[in-house]
Simulated assay, not measured.
Amino acid sequence: MINDYLQPEDFLMDDTFKKYCEGSDERCIQFWEKWVIDNPSKSHLVEKARYMYQILSANITPMNVQVNKINEALQPQKELRKRYILWYAAAAACFFIVLMAGLFYYVNKPEKPVLYSKSFETGLGSKKKIVLPDGTIVYLNSDSEIKMEEGFNEETRSVKLIGEAYFDVAHNKEKPFKVLTDNFKVTVLGTIFNLKAYPKEGFSEASLVKGSIKVESTDGDQENTLTLRPGQKMKFYQNEKKSIAGVKASPQLPKIELGRLTKLDTNIVETAWVTNNLVFDALTWKEMQPIIERWYGIDIELGDETVAGYQYTATFSKENIFEVLKRLQEVKSFKYKMKGGQIIITK
């Protein structure tokens, strides 16, 4: 129920609220405008959620651009005529600049780089259970790697992840547990969550099972920070740089989605792999391809664009690759053949 929404993140998972923020559906706009009027005590939550939506949708104008526009719009209303006033103003400005420069250096002084030493990794078609020195249990999915910082658990607990891992973090209030990926950083005290960050895929994902985690972008921008609660997930889509001939490509802000964990039968889709269940929820062949390749350690070529768009919902456990292909064929027909250790899918 909408009246039970207690955090901005709750609003962001409501599709009608997203359309209200986008201004794309008149009925949603009318509904939410009326709801805000009828629920004035929650207007501040709605405004914060709308602001967060704009950030996540990459529609907020960068602060420096806003400041420049304001400065351009402001015109001096009068000139100071007395020279000594100008002198004091200049002296004050110099003092302020020096003070702010010192403060900026103090606040933004370079942190000591984290050095990662011991690592664990898995190949295609394999998984691994790891117990870190602090007691944290990590399940590492196929084709993944996790690195521990030097001196892990002495003063801090920091690891770096490439691929996918399920964490059951040992609680330690004095030493927050941190996981760094290419796209974001996760900070926790003690909790259970799943991170997916394969470099070749166009997105990264954080899914929370128990406790709470803080997810922030690796650029350190405090505006791009979310706190997830149990049953929530965040998906981070990295935009590709688009360039025009002769014009240098400019980086685009990533798209971020907030949603809920998906349950299919008795499995939570995002973490089913931990119990050796391969679950697809309305995925196309193109989306399933890298997952099946990692799971079975085999190369797949999609030889037909139509087949690549075929969509499937299915659960597998102990089936081999050929049993999986047969069951998928029963849902939507396609052909396949083996060639040089590769499976080629055609219509």
Rank of each mutant, 00 (worst) to 15 (best):
L208Y: 04
A282E: 12
A272L: 03
L264D: 00
L228W: 04
V269N: 01
I244E: 13
T218A: 08
M288F: 09
T262S: 14
E287N: 11
A245V: 13
K248Y: 13
K210C: 07
S204M: 06
P230E: 03
T225K: 08
N224I: 12
K214H: 10
G220S: 10
L258Y: 02
K241Q: 11
K248Q: 13
L208C: 06
A249L: 09
T262R: 11
T275W: 12
V269S: 00
R260A: 02
V279S: 00
L261W: 03
L226E: 03
A245N: 10
P254S: 08
Q232A: 09
E257C: 11
A245D: 09
S212K: 07
E270Y: 02
K233N: 11
Q252L: 13
E223F: 05
K286N: 10
Q232C: 06
E270A: 01
L258K: 03
V209N: 04
K248G: 14
G259V: 04
L264K: 04
G220T: 09
I268E: 00
I213M: 06
L253K: 04
Q232Y: 06
E205P: 04
T262F: 06
I268H: 00
K210E: 14
W273Q: 00
P290I: 11
P230G: 03
E201G: 08
A282C: 12
K255F: 07
N267Q: 11
S217K: 09
P251R: 06
E270F: 00
D219H: 09
